[in-house]
Design a protein around this nucleic acid. Structure first.
Lengths: 258, 258
DNA sequence: ATTAGACTGTACGGTATCGCACATAGCGCC
DNA sequence: GGCGCTATGTGCGATACCGTACAGTCTAAT
């Protein structure tokens, strides 16, 4: 499938902003939900860090040191099996944070947190975060609701893995990712997507080719642009909208602003 | 595959105890983990209820009224898709409780809680449970760890759905269920198992037939007996042992007794 | 301008699972 | 003892996905 619009030639400006990892990280919705006083307490101990593609924030069984609040990056919670095959369990972006198990008492998880789209995140020492959590205030309430949103995403992933085609799953994955970037442009190779979905790279190539034929996406060498989002949503299985609806319900839009 | 040992003819005693739903419900491990004072507070408001096969404890999007602590029954957290196909997200038995979203602040979930193996459970009004939870004591700590155990189970389900054969998934399902019954005998038709796994009934028939040929299980008309559990574990994918190890880690064996 | 490397496209046989149809067998009930 | 229902067994073509191999194609670096 030949490609109509190229990225590195025709679209220099938007390209630059992505390749240089968006100098101006916007806020994190989870943090924005918190009362200003709590935000201030947390921000006293937070630092903004740059997260290149492939950074492993924590690995299976490992005790995490930091909690990360992505601003313009995407982190996959990935599971790696004994024989090396993978599957994405959930995806975290500017809607939440990475390091839930630190607050749940388990300290570690069976999954791995890995940066799938480079960008920035605020991070805070797990101990600091836990201290605020243990005040049993609004941070705890919000965290629990976000935990349930994550659970929803995992459940839906399980169902989607069972019942839906690669093409549908690709749609779901694209939509979930775009929502967490507030953009219609994704820097991501088919190979990486295949790892996330736990399928062959060729399967993704085929599915992406079909979506291109249907005039829904353009893509080229690690860049994907959604050109017709409504159509993408219509092709997608219910899994995306279920997760989105539930996430919106549990974490309604931004009461506070940074 | 003809069957050697029949159940309704040769094994009247163990059969009777199952068909009549085991008059003596043993304890619930989650409750046993709690300090006696908290147990007492909870038990003041609890009642023991009989749960026949197929009872729906809560449905998707529904606000739950009660929290259930199974003693000798099994409850599946099941997801039903738009077109009616199903998939089990996690299974709850005497290791935990049903109604997590009540405590997480979401009130409802996208899944359905349905009794897969008849028996008894203690139940308590959600409001009472939440009141104790809101005291931020050991019930909260334990609940959060149990939530993480549930998350682990869901994550593993997602991976298993993606990468493993029906036979392996059947093994996982059998082992998880048996652990929650403390028995090697299961009252369960292949049709129901197929619903849980989200596969065809015929697929389960085939897989079960192979397990019988391998001398691992006996079964007949809704009764399954595991005759060689070590072998069953060896055939199973890693998914069972990962979940078991993580559950044991998060909820170590019974410090308190009822 | 050339080359190396990364990304994407295509092909093909193999396999697991599906959807459907129907046959057989055990058990309760009259 | 016979009937009907439920549970299980089996067969067969269709399909989605896999594993592997290899061929293009774009980009960046020299």
């Amino acid at each position: 499938m030949p490609l109509v619009s190229k990225f590195h030639s025709s679209d220099k400006s938007s390209d630059k902003s992505s390749d240089q990892s968006s100098q101006q990280p916007t806020g994190n919705h989870f943090l924005n939900h918190l009362p200003v006083t709590i935000q201030q307490r947390l921000f006293e101990h937070m630092e903004l860090v740059e997260l290149p593609l492939g950074t492993v924030l924590y690995d299976a069984g490992e005790v995490m040191r930091y909690v990360y609040f992505p601003t313009n990056c995407i982190v996959s919670l990935l599971y790696v099996t004994e024989n090396g095959s993978q599957a994405e369990i959930a995806v975290v972006g500017n809607d939440g944070f990475v390091g839930m198990s630190l607050l749940m008492g388990g300290e570690s998880t069976i999954s791995r947190g890995i940066v799938q789209s480079a960008g920035y995140a605020y991070r805070i020492l797990g101990l600091r975060m836990k201290a605020e959590f243990n005040r049993h205030g609004e941070l705890m309430d919000l965290t629990l609701r976000y935990a349930q949103a994550l659970i929803t995403q995992m459940a839906q992933t399980a169902v989607c893995n069972r019942h839906h085609s690669i093409e549908q799953q690709l749609c779901r994955w694209l939509l979930l990712s775009l929502d967490r970037l507030n953009d219609n442009h994704l820097v991501m190779t088919q190979e990486l997507i295949a790892n996330m979905l736990g399928v062959r790279r060729e399967g993704v190539t085929e599915a992406a080719g079909r979506l291109h034929t249907k005039q829904v996406i353009d893509y080229s060498r690690g860049h994907i642009v959604v050109t017709d989002r409504p159509k993408l949503e219509s092709i997608c299985c219910e899994c995306y909208s279920v997760v989105k609806a539930e996430t919106d319900r549990l974490l309604p839009y931004c009461p506070h602003k940074t």
